[in-house]
Design a protein around this nucleic acid. Structure first.
Lengths: 342, 342
DNA sequence: TTGAAAGCGCTAACAG
DNA sequence: CTGTTAGCGCTTTCAA
């Protein structure tokens, strides 16, 4: 059974290929009657509609944009917050007539998604500095929108006021009277297996917000790094923090980290918030679900996704955009309280 | 600045377009020396490599497969278990030289991802029965692999032994002496806003496993439906279950549901497992993280993703595949105990 | 309102 | 090893 194309349908109806194309893609360009006849013939022949690949080549647009994820892909999805981001991106893109293609880190030189996959543009959502992927996108001269990352002034981006959000968390602890404060932030597992400071925008900005606020109050925090995952390793870092410093309050990079600190505290017979105050970050579902509910810094991830996707779609439609900075705000819940409450 | 194509590079070097194509796509087809010259010229002209769209048309393969998600996209990502599935799918596809394109439910007729996006095949991972998307994929005659779903004998699929897993959960409660058993399973929000039974493979199979095992023991369970989300609504259903029946054990459709039951129990002053035993499903991270840790039914989601993606890749490479049934197994933890332990 | 011409950028197949 | 031929399936432009 030969493949059915626009041409087959055109031959069947006795019109030109172009007319059949219009019947599908620009219904207003031909009479309703002719269109009906064409659609019927198409149905009869089993023609579904214009082949996306052929259309892509002719139009010069593919109809899909990439989402470049650095690091392990699973991290991006397994984290409730980034999963929500991805969902909102896909949602907005669909509205704009675009699909979302996931651009994973390559396994080998033979297939490099950022280089080899047909896309019209890309969202760069990576938690660590520039990757080879970003470079490929640049070489291809594809429009890019950065998310939670700074790719230079020429690349529009959506960022969150992480510095301000972190500062609010630090101020909150200070206002509750805490002076011995720990920070559990994210570290990168290096080649040697050791944990080093992360260079990502959120890591940098949050740290800047914490330390600036604390040092302005004359407080010198105890800083401990934890890997993004697995849970065990995070818990281990939390234990280390509680053991190494005699802290009464802890500022965490994420709600996941905060939960680990709460757990480590319980192991040591400390109650939260009576003996230890803990501030999370992200206001993920688990911040308000578990107990104690977490004091945390909230950001509107859904809005971030919609905005970033919309910006990229705008650029593809020829409009201009400029970067946006979204707010972050402290949400006080059960996990923090006045120092020495007990 | 004119667009650089294979032709531009060919002209620059003074060879045919084909030779340049080979320099990029089939390095072994030309001398190392010539290849180097071509690559240098390409670099000089700013040619990145063959345009994926042109290549797709010429090759007849796009290099990307779709992941068809029914229901709200966010559900698929926000759930830890399906997020892990998606991650493992993307991971395996990358190994096979394929990208993953997310096929969302259409917002309007103008853009229907399952119909309009260029893909070589698709994974259908939907939690409810056939959608229009599946139909479009069929009309396009695209190879499809079903996941946790039965699309008929002609469509290969990966499924989990949900019936057996559920049966293990039910048996576990029976062995602990429970006779008054509740089931909190998933319901679909209908057009009228009311909750109806879900028709999805997991919903059907788990229910079958539970009821078959219970009724063989002469136990008639109290069944309550809960929506997939939001958390509040799930909690409400959990309360309803505890209030409506005087149960000592509850079998849940997911760990999320189980957590809601635990919470509702605590609200009523019941301790888990002393006063109430709760069995979750999926063995998601939160099953072993929170307290009490959840007795649950475990499935290897990562293996499921790798397998499904591998099957689709195999089909695209012309190999034949057959459906697979993966095992599920009970993991006993803290949330279940002998009836009347207190 | 319809159609003809002219590719979009690339690669399979085969000849030299 | 390199080049030629012949499209892949579709759309843009412009004329009829």
């Amino acid at each position: 059974m030969a493949k059915v194309t626009l041409q087959s349908v055109a031959d069947e109806v006795g019109v030109s290929r172009m007319t059949v194309s219009n019947a599908f893609s620009r219904p207003d360009q031909l009479s309703a009657d002719l269109r009906t006849r064409i659609l019927e013939a198409a149905q009869k022949l089993g023609y579904v509609g214009p082949d996306p690949a052929g259309r892509a080549l002719a139009r010069g647009r593919v109809g899909s944009v990439g989402l470049l994820l650095n690091g392990a892909l699973s991290e991006a999805f397994e984290d409730e917050v980034s999963a929500e981001f991805v969902a909102s991106v896909a949602d907005e893109l669909t509205k704009r007539g675009l699909a979302l293609t996931v651009l994973t880190p390559p396994k080998d030189e033979a297939f490099v998604p950022a280089r080899d996959v047909a896309i019209d543009g890309a969202l760069v959502y990576t938690c660590e500095p520039l990757s080879a992927g970003v470079e490929w996108l640049g070489r291809r001269r594809l429009p890019v929108v950065a998310v939670d990352q700074d790719l230079g002034d020429s690349v529009p981006g959506v960022r969150v006021d992480d510095r301000g959000g972190a500062a609010q968390g630090a101020r909150h602890l200070l206002e509750l009277g805490h002076r011995r404060i720990g920070i559990l932030t994210i570290g990168l597992v290096g080649d040697d297996g050791a944990l080093g400071a992360s260079d990502s925008y959120p890591a940098r900005e949050r740290m800047a917000g914490w330390t600036a606020t604390l040092s302005a109050a004359g407080v010198e925090p105890v800083v401990v790094l934890a890997p993004y995952q697995p849970t065990d390793a995070v818990l281990q870092s939390a234990r280390e923090l509680l053991d190494s410093g005699d802290v009464t309050g802890v500022l965490c990079f994420s709600d996941v980290f905060a939960r680990a600190v709460v757990r480590a505290a319980e192991e040591r017979g400390l109650s939260v918030p009576e003996d230890l105050s803990v501030v999370g970050y992200d206001d993920s579902p688990q911040a308000s679900t578990g107990r104690p509910t977490l004091t945390t810094v909230s950001q509107d991830v859904t809005a971030k996704g919609h905005l970033a996707a919309g910006m990229l779609a705008d650029v593809l439609e020829g409009r201009t955009t400029s970067s946006a900075l979204l707010p972050a705000s402290l949400v006080a819940r059960e996990s923090t309280g006045p120092v020495g409450a007990r």
